[in-house]
Amino acid sequence: MKNNSTTKKVIIAIVGLAAILLPVFSSDPYILHIAIAILIWSMLALGIRIVLVSGHLNIAQASFMGFGAYASGALAMKLGWSFWICLPLAGVIAAILAIIVGLPTLRIKGAYFVIITLGLSEVSRRIWMMWDSLFGGPQGLLGIPPPDAIKLGGLAIMFNSKVHYFYLAFVLFVITVFVMWRFEKSRTGLLLKSFPKADMLAESSGVYIMKYKVAAFALGAFFAGLAGSFWAHYFTYCSPWDFTLMASFYMLMYVVMGGTGSIAGPIVGSAVMLTLDELLRPFKEYMPMILGVILILVLRFMPGGIISIPGLIRDAVMRKE
């Protein structure tokens, strides 16, 4: 037991250090861009997972990302607000939206919530398309300003190279992982996991289930909002076509691929799948088909995801001995 957790710590330390030093080894913008995508998509996937832990499937995570992106972009462009104010506000706006959507739907078992999130993903796209004056209609918001420079004494971070964006994404990612880890390790995590098993029992022990479910959903949306804000200012534009149902499906696939059992799962899933996505770029139009088959096969034959592979191998070896 103890040994296991030391191994874990060592792995986290090595991976973390490698990540921090990545820009030192490679300043190739292409590599850095993929690394940034992995960090940001991990944040989104972690948000889906924490809701999944409580027995609910959110297939509108891209919409929450979109609301964060649009809120942040619109505030920065129309009101000239600094990115550093828009960023947390984007998270808060996405979280408030999640609370509004979650309150009537998380009360009832699974089916309703997933259908409402399905509807949300389509409705949100239409809102952005329709509302020309604020969201720029079908072509979206163009010319979102990059983050303002940070001046720390003599050191100035200008956000004029991918390296700076990489470190910003890394900081956001670390905050997400930390909060998710503490959230799950605390009693809240235990309660969330108890709901899919016997919610009546938890409720008649005095647990107000809605509070925890809505909190988990809002937390996931908050980080999706942050991710969206980052994405909008990083690309300096965003459009309704960036935050579609298909994008949510991809995030969900990262979660399922990596494994839903732990925080490491969605991160590993994002890293592996995004890398694979780049390698398989020539077969782009077959991706949804491959994606569908992968979802079906993984859930059937490897419900623990990629993260369970070492354990499966260990079991297989042990059985032989």
Binding site: L52, I59, G110, P196, M289, L291, L295, I296, L299
Partner: peptide, 20 residues
Amino acid sequence: EPHETVMIVSLGVMLFLQAA
């Protein structure tokens, strides 16, 4: 079982049939 798994599987089927 559980329900979420079947839902995700059906999403997979949806993507596959659309793409096919």
